[in-house]
């Protein structure tokens, strides 16, 4: 019964990626040595008054930095830092700590602190991608609407990840040198999934050295394979906004008996099927987190009516990429949506 409930949630409005791609990181945090020029920590404080600060402690993607790595010293530590940062830079604002419903221990711990501080609110979210996208997190926690692509600061909301909170605290308040960022690296192109301490400014190549498998072809992505971007030039530098690096095996050859080897193919760049016509299966509108009907855009697009696609609430799309991910006909729906938008 419990399993049934789960699988229902997996499908409707979003997708549980954590279940589909279980990624384990090795516990030891490695360091990447780099002597070249590095980027200093930089956080541009918003000019507008901030009423709400959302701290995102709910990584919805399996390749994102796990909470255990940031909260080594307990949640108390980060909440104290948050309090100091808040009183200094965002006075009178309320802080919302958002935790995934799976992390019961963390929720319990945070709830204890919530009782003592009136500025602190603890919220939970189901671990379903893309619930942590700014548009959805603002809608789910505060009930505010914001259009995709606009900065949440415009409506007085600031969304921070815990690493940035620590950065502001160390760099701007303690005036300490703060020059490293934790970057998780994972994927089938690697020998081992690791969390690395990286100085922003380090080229991606430096991170991959010694970690990638030499016997296969691979492709490198930053900020996740779903809506991140591909690194074509490995001299590209890691910056303060880089969330993660994913290295996937490139399966550009045919695999025999693929139906029996789904797990082998799953976390690679393989399309896992052939390009076909839309078969109106409704998978894309069932999975869409903002209740759109992506197949409509595809039909408009192939008829050459990009204008018409915009009539069907296209502006609500948050470009999470789930429609292309789920499509059994392997249509490039996200690409079509982007082209219709432009």
């Amino acid at each position: 019964m419990a399993k049934e409930k789960k699988s229902k949630k997996v499908y409707k409005n979003g997708f549980n990626l954590l279940e589909k791609y279980p990624i384990e990181f090795s516990e030891k945090v490695g360091t990447v040595k780099y002597d070249g020029p590095i980027e200093a920590f930089d956080f541009s404080f918003p000019r507008k008054k901030i009423d709400h600060v959302i701290i995102n402690l709910c990584p919805m993607e399996p390749w994102a930095l796990p909470n255990s790595a940031v909260l080594k010293n307990g949640v108390r530590n980060i909440l104290d830092k948050l309090d100091i940062v808040r009183t200094r830079y965002f006075p009178k604002s309320h802080c919302y700590v958002v935790i995934s419903t799976q992390e019961t221990k963390l929720i319990k711990e945070s709830k204890q602190h919530e009782g003592h501080e009136e500025w602190l609110h603890v919220h939970t979210l189901d671990p379903i991608y893309p619930n942590d996208a700014p548009v959805l997190i603002v809608k789910k926690i505060l009930g505010l609407d914001i259009a995709y692509g606009r900065n949440t600061v415009e409506i007085g909301v600031l969304v921070l990840d815990p690493q940035t909170v620590v950065g502001i605290f160390e760099h701007h308040i303690r005036k300490n040198e703060f020059s490293t960022r934790l970057i998780p690296i994972s994927g089938t192109g690697l020998r081992e999934n690791k969390i690395l301490e990286v100085k922003p400014g380090t080229p991606v190549q430096k991170i991959l050295d010694g970690n990638v498998r030499e016997d296969i072809k691979y492709r490198v992505f930053v900020d996740g394979p779903l809506n991140g971007s591909e690194v074509k030039d490995l001299t590209q530098k890691i910056d303060w906004s880089t969330k993660n690096v994913v290295v996937l095996e490139e399966r550009d050859y045919k695999t025999l008996f693929h139906f029996a080897r789904v797990s082998e193919l799953l976390f690679t760049t393989s399309l896992m099927g052939e390009l076909r016509c839309c078969i109106y299966c409704n998978y894309c509108d069932d999975i869409c987190p903002v209740d759109l009907e992506p197949a409509l855009y595809w039909h408009c697009y192939i008829r050459g009516e990009k204008q018409k696609a915009r009539l069907y609430a296209l502006e609500k799309c948050i470009e999470c990429g789930l429609c292309s991910f789920i499509c059994p006909s392997k249509l490039e729906l996200l690409q079509v949506i982007k082209e219709c938008k432009s």
Binding site: E250, T255, L271, E274, K330
Partner: peptide, 17 residues
């Protein structure tokens, strides 16, 4: 399996075809 790989985002796909 087909030898096609994902050229645009998203770079991973579901196995249902």
């Amino acid at each position: 399996s087909s030898k096609d790989t994902a050229k645009t985002q998203p770079f991973i796909r579901n196995q249902m075809d």
